[in-house]
Design a protein around this nucleic acid. Structure first.
Lengths: 195, 195
DNA sequence: ACCTGAACACCGTTCAAGT
DNA sequence: ACCTGAACACCGTTCAAGT
């Protein structure tokens, strides 16, 4: 067991991510993660003060992955700031619908006050900052009207987050966007038109 | 005990709503609701097949309350369709931030497939349909461009849902909209500009 | 310093039994 | 027809004890 060398924390996080992927948020238990790591139910408490701290680590990992995905997609989009912003929005939504359980933990109520977890807060902010930067690039290129960048960034974030959430929660049945591909086409239409 | 007369279902729903209001989603337990109603832990199973069915009833109640609130607010707004639509959006967000726990159950992952619960599905659809009708009234008055009403309605819904969710989850700290009143002002600005 | 074993107070759910 | 009592397999969490 390599866990006696100090990487039990990593093993628990890994196990938690596996449980989440296999059975959704309700399958993500502290005891289950301990089982996966081959330790007793009490062992995690040497590395996390409680379950919320494990969830915060899982959420942090999610924001890092989301940000990495967004970065890759906007690089692939080329140099045009409008195209980059458009792909950024699509990348955000695609990440959410491809990892619905992880996305839910990132925004869910199980972590009540996210400002208490500095690393999570930083990761979350970095993802938002990148979206705002994509928008600012459009503004500096003169292709969208001037105005408060913060308000425009919040609108863009709310839009992609709202679209992704409604789709994940199955609320879009009957709107002509209940299937993945139709939905992404609708996201493209809506997001591109609202910069 | 009047519960022997057939209203235990109502009493359990009432107890569930109280628990939700007092301690959030994690406090909403089947056993807790049974305790509030003065019955044994097994009694609820005569009225709900499992916990999810109780949650679906709670969520249904939430959509009905949301729709009632929206109806009242747009009536108070007068006859101008633009004003009515604006107040509709604000009413939606205000309901969410005033009843965050209830709002979370309405959209949360504890109810996996909402189409399985007909009454919940109908209540949810009614709330959406009213928002779409508010938007259609603007279109018929000629104050917003023509075009696919469904797409515009989904955009409006995603926007208010996204804004409300981000606020409830505490994700808007640092954007100048972390307090209730600043936030609602921002919602007004964003929503009015994106019909 | 890090982990185990055993315990506590909770869950959701089932099922025989009572009225 | 509706509810109880007791049980089962789970949780999160604590704490003395082991190495």
């Amino acid at each position: 067991m390599a866990y006696h060398h100090g990487d039990l924390r990593r093993a628990l996080l890994q196990g938690a991510l596996e449980l989440l992927g296999e059975g959704g948020p309700s399958a993500l238990t502290l005891r289950g993660a301990a089982r996966r790591a081959g330790v007793s139910p009490a062992a995690p408490y040497r590395h996390f003060t409680d379950k919320r701290e494990l969830l915060a680590a899982v959420a942090e990992e999610g924001f890092l992955a989301l940000d990495r995905h967004a970065e890759e997609e906007i690089e692939r989009a080329g140099a045009d700031p409008v195209q980059r912003f458009r792909c950024h929005g699509l990348a955000y939504v695609r990440f959410a619908i491809d990892h619905p359980a992880h996305y839910r933990v990132m925004f869910g109520p199980e972590i009540p006050d996210k400002r208490l977890y500095a690393a999570l807060d930083a990761a979350s902010r970095a993802a938002y900052d990148r979206l705002r930067d994509s928008l600012r690039a459009c503004q500096q290129a003169g292709v969208i009207p001037e105005g408060d960048i913060e308000i425009r960034a919040v609108r863009a974030w709310a839009l992609v987050h709202g679209l992704a959430s409604l789709f994940i929660d199955g609320q879009l049945a009957g709107t002509g966007a209940s299937e993945r591909e139709e939905f992404l086409k609708m996201v493209d239409t809506i997001f591109s038109a609202s910069s």
